[in-house]
Amino acid sequence: MRLEPKPAPSLAVTLLFPLAAIATTLVLTSILVLAAGASPLSVFYLVAKGAAGSQFALLETLTRATPLIFTGLAIAVAFRAKLWNIGAEAQLYIGGVVTVVLGTGALPLPSVILIPVIMVAVMAAGALLLLGPAVLKTRFGVDEVVTTLLLNFIVLLFVSMLLEGVLKDPMGLGWPQSQKVVAEAQLPRLIQGKRLHYGFVIALASAVLVWVVMKKTVLGYEMRAVGLNPEGARFVGILVNRALMKTALLSGGLAALAGFSEVSGLKGNLTLDLSPGYGYTGIVVAMLAMLNPLGVIASAIFVAGIFVGADAMSRAAKVPSYIADVMVATSLLTMVVAILLTRFRIRWR
């Protein structure tokens, strides 16, 4: 068996393969639904209805998509330069910590100043957290996959320590949770009385900004060159290590914004269940978007829809909501195969 490169695919083909990947995912997960004794068609219908069947459902999906856009962008940026940042979960939590430290009354500033100040600090913290593994990679040759993965566990324990120590809410009835951020540090709701907040708008703006950086700036060109061919990039005079550092700063900062947006826009305080794995799901979001920053918006909404829809479905049908995690993981694997098939032809000989 061998792989032969194909001529560049047309736009229609490029879009057809991801759809085929999703269709394959649905067929494969149907087996699991059948194993649960339910009908796949009605279960998928319930998932779709739960994700987008009403105004409430749709707003909930967009709310859930917000942190995924941030972590998806973080991964898309890093993976483009082949910097394997699997630590978005840790960067998200650090973002939450900084939001709570600065947002619970330490800075008596009006909202228009306080929120940008918090956002800059949050991005700086997330950026520094990823800078460590990036320096270890370039200076010592330590694989960043392992270090970023291990940092996820260290940071979660660190957050747990803070929530039982200095950041513990004295009025929290003993629960490990922080105080609520002050009103000036809260992102307003987009629609009065609904959960969707301005974090979603910031996420959309970030996606556009990241797209501009990747497509229109020297930095974006350097990042893509380093990812495609580090030796070649070095040969044309790109400082590869420096480009990797910049990538790490941008990626870590974006992931940390997910934590800021969740605390400041949705939850109000920091708890140990701030993220049900948004950092890891961001990898799937980025891959489904083929690492395109604007595609991240669509794939984050799609993935969020599966989770929100599956929650609603599992209340109605007797199928565990973990079906959503299986669907998302399966779609990651079918998607990478689909991308391969748009570029190569398999020859059996």
């Binding site: 699991l32 890891y280 995690d325 299986v326 998302v328 993981a329 399966t330 990651l332 694997l333």
Partner: peptide, 18 residues
Amino acid sequence: QHVVGIGVTLLATSLTYY
């Protein structure tokens, strides 16, 4: 191998929980 490995971890874990 990075992406597939993470994918296999996500798939195996979620299939187990399911």
